[in-house]
Design a binder for these strands. Structure first.
Length: 474
DNA sequence: TACTTCTGTCATCCC
DNA sequence: GGGGGATGACAGAAG
């Protein structure tokens, strides 16, 4: 087309300001390297138009490639940060590649600009193994406010759990003779039997056949006294309160009514149903760690409470065992091995009731420990998830920051390329010596390496042809 | 008094 | 098939 402006036609004009190509072949190559490194495209540099165009083309390609990578990486990383759990940020190759790509594509200043303390930020907050050490005073190294917040709630719980394991069990069941309680309260054997008539559990002795709606509180009611109308077991004994075992002990100087086993069993139904035995002082768990004093105060309060109530439920089983003349403590029953337990059952000629009680005690004791372990595991899982959330939030913020910096660098490069583009056109002249309008013409590089100044509409059609050719090759 | 937390216990599932 | 561990659900005690 006549409007086409061949590059060669402009060569003369460019020769005025640019050295001939042949003389500066090596210089051009060096200049290209410099430009790639410094990203400074000064028109005044001794570059030929072809060199400029090649640089321009490569920079545009790089820019587009980098931009695409940034977009893809950012989207992927953002999705990873929001959807996947527990990925170690330090292993994020995408981020490394992104930074490297930008460093390779941009000049050192740009690369420096793109560098962030991303990895440093991530590594500065490793998944330190403090999940078993969540004492309030030990969490001061948590710098993330959110982490601090989350950790605070659960730290107390964990310290409680750990301290619970570290604390020795109390045995306050020394000389308890609770079988005499009812009798000491002035009840006759018949009344006792009536009072204690309560459907039994699977063992015939379990206190929870009616779940917790039924309480067993001869001890609790000792000061209240039983009226004759309170003879149906499920209706009395509300509120098995901790500490009543002390009351039991006070009234425990009588002998076992061993001659009436049915009454004995019935009496067992009356013992406290306090679920708080075996609690350790530090189980007042949910105190925020920054309230250490409050935490300690609450711990002491719970300690006092538990001290009174700890023995209560345990002594219930203990007392029941003693009531049935089982020569083993609750601890022994629970902690002994299966073989030992079975041997004990076999060697001691025990009644069905005694065996049932033993199995109940053992089952409850085992289950209690299992429940404690289960809750501890659950808290650990929650802590892990919270920590993962914090890490992913940090990673997301870092990626956002990096993306912002990349966008800035891309805009700067775009501006430089635009300036270079217009500078090139300002130097171009058509065959009549007139300036070439950059709005009507574009710089086009074909597949053979030729560089032309062609009208825009031709460039578009040629791009389509190139795409078709590439598609055919693929 | 309502709510929360902690704990024990039971029922159930799974190994 | 029984025993034991794990866990959800529930209830009571206490703050």
């Amino acid at each position: 087309m006549a409007e086409d402006v061949d590059l060669k036609a402009c060569q003369g004009a460019l020769d005025d300001c640019c050295p001939p190509r042949g003389e500066h072949q090596l210089e051009l190559q060096e200049e290209e390297k410099d430009i790639n490194q410094s990203n400074s495209h000064h028109v005044d540099s001794p570059l030929s138009l072809e060199g400029y165009l090649q640089l321009l083309s490569s920079q545009v390609e790089n820019m587009l490639e980098v931009n695409e990578k940034i977009q893809v990486n950012f989207l992927e990383d953002t999705q990873v940060a929001t959807s996947s759990g527990g990925q170690d940020p330090s292993s994020s190759h995408d981020n490394i590649n992104l930074t490297q790509t930008l460093q390779n594509s941009f000049s050192p200043p740009d690369a420096i600009l793109l560098r962030t303390d991303y990895h440093t930020q991530l590594n500065s907050k490793p998944r330190h193994l403090q999940r078993q050490e969540f004492f309030p005073q030990s969490s001061s190294d948590v710098t993330n406010p959110e982490s601090l917040f989350h950790g605070a709630n659960l730290a107390g719980l964990f310290s409680a759990a750990d301290l619970r394991n570290l604390t020795a069990h109390d045995d306050n069941f020394g000389d308890i003779k609770l079988m005499s309680l009812a009798l000491e309260e002035g009840f006759g054997p018949v009344e006792v039997s009536q009072i204690y008539e309560e459907p039994c559990s699977d063992s015939g002795l379990s206190l929870s056949s009616h779940h917790s709606t039924t309480s067993y509180s001869v001890c609790c009611e000792d000061s209240v006294g039983y009226s004759s109308g309170v003879k149906s077991a499920p209706s009395y004994g509300l509120g098995a309160v901790g500490g009543h075992c002390q009351e039991n002990i006070k009234h425990s100087h009588g002998a076992y009514p061993g001659d009436a086993e049915c009454s004995t069993e019935a009496m067992l139904q009356q013992f406290l149903h306090n679920h708080t035995y075996n609690q350790m002082p530090t189980q007042a768990a949910s105190t925020p760690e920054h309230h250490q004093q409050t935490w300690m105060k609450k711990s002491n309060e719970v300690k006092d409470r538990c001290h009174n109530s700890t023995a209560t439920n345990r002594c219930r089983d203990e007392c029941r065992a003693k009531a049935l003349r089982i020569p083993f403590s609750v601890d022994e029953i629970v902690s002994m091995s299966v073989d030992s337990f079975n041997t004990m059952l076999a060697k001691n000629q025990l009644t069905e009731t005694q065996i049932s009680l033993l199995r109940d005690i053992r089952r409850r004791g085992k289950n209690k420990v299992a429940a404690q372990k289960c809750r501890k595991r659950k808290l650990n899982a929650i802590l892990n998830l919270e920590e993962d959330v914090c890490n992913l939030q940090t990673q997301k913020e870092s990626l956002k920051k990096e993306h912002s910096q990349c966008s800035k660098s891309i805009n700067q490069i775009k501006q430089k390329l635009n300036n270079l583009y217009h500078d090139i056109f300002s130097r171009l002249r058509d065959d009549q010596g007139r300036p070439v309008n950059p709005c009507q013409y574009v710089i086009h590089c074909n597949s053979n390496g030729g560089i032309f100044i062609i009208p825009k509409h031709l460039a578009k059609s040629e791009q389509k042809q190139d795409k078709r050719a590439e598609a055919k090759v693929r």
